[in-house]
Design a protein around this nucleic acid. Structure first.
Length: 978
RNA sequence: GGGCCUGUAGCUCAGUUGGCUAGAGCGCACCGCUGAUAACGGUGAGGUCGACAGUUCGAGUCUGUCCAGGCCCA
């Protein structure tokens, strides 16, 4: 009996209801925005409500470890597109390593100290009027109060960001992250500082550093932003103090001497540094000329004459003589408005005898200026080096607030340097020293926070020396860094060019200034002796650290020096200052330093503060650091240096970098464009965003545009629909635990697709292993769309729909489908966390109440143990040709339906005799397939043969059955008809 | 200005050591199916490989210069 109803028009039975049509509760519409949070909630119940991360850790307990270390984002503001990529890529690593069979602990971290938070908090305090209350407090009390506010603020930001990162479905130990302000973290940082002290790499010195006038603090390289700025640029004549010497240098005889006094022309874009001028630098090898310009005699580089005089619109230009730079070295000059070389305010005995003379410097160029470079050792890195070399004092007459001190002329003392620019220029013009002045635009370093221009200024700072020999073996940090990033291959780079980039930066980096003059940070536990000398040794740092580890760094501000040094015994410290050793100075005569550590020193110590300390020393070095390519100079390098200093080896084995987000035209992304992440969660769903991230060639710049998320959504729906179609054909099938494929024929369609699946498993796991997520994405996409949707699934539709439900052929197909669907869910799991689990649960018919079945606690699929006929690839080539021929026939005839066609494929050698012609007909989408001895492909028109009313195939067995319908044997059997 | 990197169809990307008419997906156009249907299948049109020189029998691939863009630095 059948329940066949009758088609009204034709009076023939309607067989649609007799088919095994797809059926599933897995919806076509993903509704990610609603359903993802539900998945997150379900995963939170795993491992006794400790959540998915802990469940994964428990599941993988005892397996081989893959140690991956999270670089801490700064705890400020909502996460943006950059975080989306960074955190998702990291999550792809964590999840794929777990699925690949590793134990992969992952501790997320936050960079909590530092200027941005302190600045924000101070701004808020000022705006709310609370700042006034701080004024009455002592220095330490004020700092402590500010620090309390900062901590509250940071805590809030961490909660905000952690919530968003969880919504991104990233798995990490969010219950116990590392936070740089926690005492145990701070202790880990001070251990590193002590280790560097022990190696003799930490020193205090007067050095020109980038100085933020607005925030009155030294800034690290990483805290600078280059912005265009209009400045006053001046060409100034410095009169020679001995005219004859100059003429002689140019080889002029007494009789040739022009009457006037010659000058040296310098060029500067910072007129405010002229009061600090102590020398003029030339290049020994360059050619210089004595030139008469509109009546004045001046010296400038030959190559600069035309450019400079044109700029100044000079009318008469006459070169009197030329000479080389080395002849000028040693000549002296008079400062245009300072009669006697000044002495630094805190060094009244400084030797100024070498001041105001011409010196040589390598960095002099001919591209800009006059070829003679104004040199102020207190206000520039190059100038400072020259000053050291030439024995000039480090003269810096500018105070922290950007005003001149009392060593400058009366008309400048107390004045802001920004105001002084114009005044100095005016003065030079009046005194006739100004050759030319003009405004010009250039890229100039700015304080990243206040956006104000920074200056170079000499201050007392703590440094880590990169060129000082370590006590361990005499190697310097730079030598070790170059070695470990070089040919000994102890560090791998993804992509490979990271090595060159890193080395380029290490080659040229200066000593690391690790001190800052702020409150929100980890204090540098240094003291000042009554003599004025600084006191900080490895042992003293470790002693103070015992206090800080238990009480936190607030103790530095709350406790007196004697309490802080309670665990310190100078007699046991070889490096202790004599006055402490002999007891002539007691601890209560010490004063505490006010500097805090550069936040980069804190994050750069995370290999110790997090990885070593949490693992009892085991997790060092770690396998992988993964960050944006800006971290070659930032976190990577600043983790490498301390680790080399303390441990003698790099903290990481592999450095993976990703590029930056740019707009669709490849231009830098504006801040506002990167801000709308929350909106993206709500419009596309996280699986779509993750699908997009996995598709990126992340090594380079990543273009981002609204359109790309839409495309990712389209592509996601294709994957989803393939999964859905497979699930819908498994509705009446009970999967076995260990399906047996041993009796599957090697030439069967199933063997082919399972062979393809096995290849997919290999390639995808390999792609994940080498962090080529883009490749895994493409492979998975292609498998779903081509191998499955277009090829296998379209071929097996007929047997799934029309064969008797329990027939062996249909059940085998379903057995195959289960493996494919299950495997696909597992391979997709690291990327499409929600969808993969949703499909996995649907496949295994998991009850709503069962919260514990989860694809994320499984692993990548194992390959199916089944041989596949080796002739398949060759056969496919022939099938492609045949299908093309069929398609051509269809296009050039009145045949619309491929099922009205039959294919005869030449196989004169009998190569393909073992293949099943029904399988091949189904692959080609035609009704009949046979091999022929002919040499040409034959396409036959089958329209003169009866068509099965149920399967719509034309088949020789089709005839009228007892219910009146025209059916093939297979369909009649399926219906139990004769 | 310097270091590292990028520039291949409208879009996103493949193109091993230089070697057959430069590939894929998306998008687009057209066709089929209407028993995966806010789906599915098929066919097709799109490229002076950033520009210009050079090396070579031969260059998307190697070299140089330039242009555009990114990161880092000055």
């Amino acid at each position: 009996m059948t329940d066949t109803t009758t088609d009204n028009k034709t009076d023939k039975p309607n067989y649609k209801k007799t088919l095994n049509l797809p059926k599933t509760s897995f919806p076509m519409k993903a509704n990610l925005v609603q359903n993802e949070p539900a998945s997150l909630k379900r995963w939170d119940t795993l491992a006794d409500k400790q959540g998915l991360y802990h469940a994964m850790q428990e599941t993988s307990e005892g397996r081989k470890r893959f140690v991956f270390h999270d670089g801490p984002p700064y705890a400020n503001g909502s996460i943006h597109l950059g975080h989306l990529m960074n955190k998702t890529l990291k999550d792809l690593v964590v999840r794929s390593k777990f699925m690949a069979g590793f134990h992969c602990p992952f501790v997320p971290g936050w960079d909590c100290h530092g200027l941005p938070i302190e600045h924000k908090v101070m701004t808020d305090l000022v705006e709310s009027g609370k700042a006034a209350k701080l004024d009455g407090l002592t220095d330490d009390q004020r700092r402590t109060a500010v620090r309390r506010e900062c901590k509250t603020y940071a805590d809030k930001q961490i909660k905000l960001q952690a919530g968003q990162m969880k919504r991104l479905m990233t798995v990490a130990d969010y219950e116990d992250p590392y936070l740089t302000f926690l005492p145990r973290y701070e202790a880990g940082v001070l251990e590193v500082l002590a280790g560097l002290c022990e190696q003799g790499l930490v020193y205090k010195a007067l050095k020109p550093v980038h100085w933020s006038v607005a925030n009155e603090t030294a800034l690290a390289d990483a805290e600078l932003e280059y912005q265009d700025r209009e400045d006053l640029s001046v060409y100034v004549d410095f009169e020679a103090s001995d005219a004859t010497a100059v003429f002689n240098a140019f080889g002029l005889e007494e009789s040739d001497h022009p009457g006037a006094t010659p000058s040296f022309m310098i060029w500067t874009t910072t007129p405010w540094t002229l009061p600090a001028n102590l020398a003029i630098a030339v290049h020994e090898k360059f050619n210089y000329a004595l030139v008469r310009v509109d009546g004045n005699l001046t010296v400038m580089a030959v190559d600069a004459i035309e450019r400079v005089t044109k700029l100044a619109k000079s009318e008469e230009v006459e070169t009197l003589a030329t000479t080389t730079g080395d002849k000028l070295v040693g000549l002296s000059y008079a400062h245009p408005f300072i009669s006697e070389a000044p002495k630094p305010i805190n060094d009244p005995d400084a030797d100024t005898s070498k001041c105001y003379s011409i010196v040589h410097a390598d960095y002099v160029t001919l591209e800009d200026g006059s070829g003679l470079v104004h040199t102020a050792p207190g206000h520039g890195a190059d100038d400072y080096m020259t000053g050291l070399k030439e024995g000039l004092p480090v003269y810096c007459p500018v105070l922290g607030d950007g005003t001149y001190d009392t060593t400058t002329p009366d008309w400048l003392a107390g004045m802001s340097i920004w105001k002084a620019n114009d005044l100095v220029a005016q003065r030079l013009t009046e005194s006739g020293h100004m050759f030319h002045a003009y405004k010009f635009n250039h890229s100039y370093p700015h304080d990243w926070r206040s956006k104000t221009p920074v200056i170079f200024r000499c201050t007392e700072q703590w440094f880590v020396a990169v060129d000082a020999p370590t006590k361990r073996d005499g190697h310097t940090l730079r030598q070790m860094a170059m070695k470990s990033t070089g040919d000994d291959r102890s560090v791998n780079y993804v992509p490979a060019w990271g090595r060159n980039r890193m080395r380029g930066m290490l080659e040229s980096r200066p000593d690391w200034c690790i001190s800052r003059q702020r409150s929100w940070g980890l204090p540098i536990p240094a003291f000042t002796l009554p003599s004025g000398d600084a006191f900080m040794t490895a042992a003293s740092v470790r002693a103070v650290n015992q206090i800080i580890e238990t009480k936190g760094s607030d103790a530095w501000f709350a406790d007196d020096p004697a309490s802080l040094l309670a665990h310190y015994n100078p007699s046991e410290d070889a490096d202790a200052p004599d006055e402490l050793k002999d007891g002539s100075v007691s601890f209560d005569q010490l004063t505490k330093g006010h500097d805090i550590l550069d936040v980069w020193f804190e994050s750069g110590s995370s290999w110790n503060a997090v990885m070593r300390r949490r693992s009892g020393g085991e997790d060092f070095p770690v396998e992988l650091y993964l960050e944006g390519s800006d971290q070659h100079r930032g976190w990577f390098q600043l983790s490498l240096l301390p680790a080399l200093g303390v441990m003698g080896r790099p903290p990481f084995r592999t450095l993976l970098t990703h590029g930056f987000m740019v707009d669709k035209d490849g231009k830098k992304l504006s801040k506002s464009a990167g801000a709308a992440l929350k909106d993206l969660f709500d419009r596309y769903g996280v699986d779509v965003l993750r699908w997009w991230v996995s598709s990126l060639a992340y090594e380079n710049d990543v273009k981002v545009d609204e359109e790309f998320f839409k495309l990712a959504g389209e592509s996601y729906r294709k994957i989803r629909n393939t999964l859905r179609f497979m699930l819908s054909n498994l509705d009446d099938y009970e999967a076995q635990d260990n399906p047996d494929f041993s009796d599957f024929h090697v030439h069967s369609l199933h063997a082919w697709v399972l062979g393809e699946f096995n290849t997919l498993v290999d390639k995808v796991t390999e792609a994940f292993e080498k962090y080529a997520f883009h490749e895994a994405h493409k492979l998975l996409y292609k498998f779903c769309n081509t191998t499955l949707s277009a090829e296998y699934l379209s071929a097996v539709k007929d047997r799934l729909y029309c064969d008797a439900p329990d027939s062996e052929r249909r059940r085998r197909t379903q057995q195959t489908l289960v493996v494919l669907t299950d495997g696909l869910c597992k391979l997709l799991a690291p990327i499409l966390c929600h969808t993969a689990d949703e499909a996995y649960r649907a496949l295994h018919k998991v009850d709503q109440k069962d919260k514990s079945t989860c694809v994320h606690l499984t692993g990548f699929p194992t390959k199916v143990n089944l041989e596949t006929a080796t002739a398949w690839p060759k056969l496919w080539e022939q099938l492609e040709r045949a299908m093309k021929a069929a398609e051509d026939t269809r296009a050039s005839s009145d045949i619309d339906n491929p099922l009205d066609l039959g294919i005869k494929l030449p196989d004169p050698e009998g190569t393909f005799e073992w293949f099943n012609s029904e399988d091949l007909a189904d692959i080609c989408g035609v009704s009949r397939f046979e091999f022929t001895k002919d040499s040409e492909i034959g396409i036959t028109d089958l329209r003169d043969q009866p068509r099965c009313d149920r399967s719509w195939k034309r088949d020789t067995t089709v005839k009228q059955r007892s219910d009146g319908g025209m059916l093939s044997d297979r369909d009649a059997q399926a219906l139990g008809l004769d």
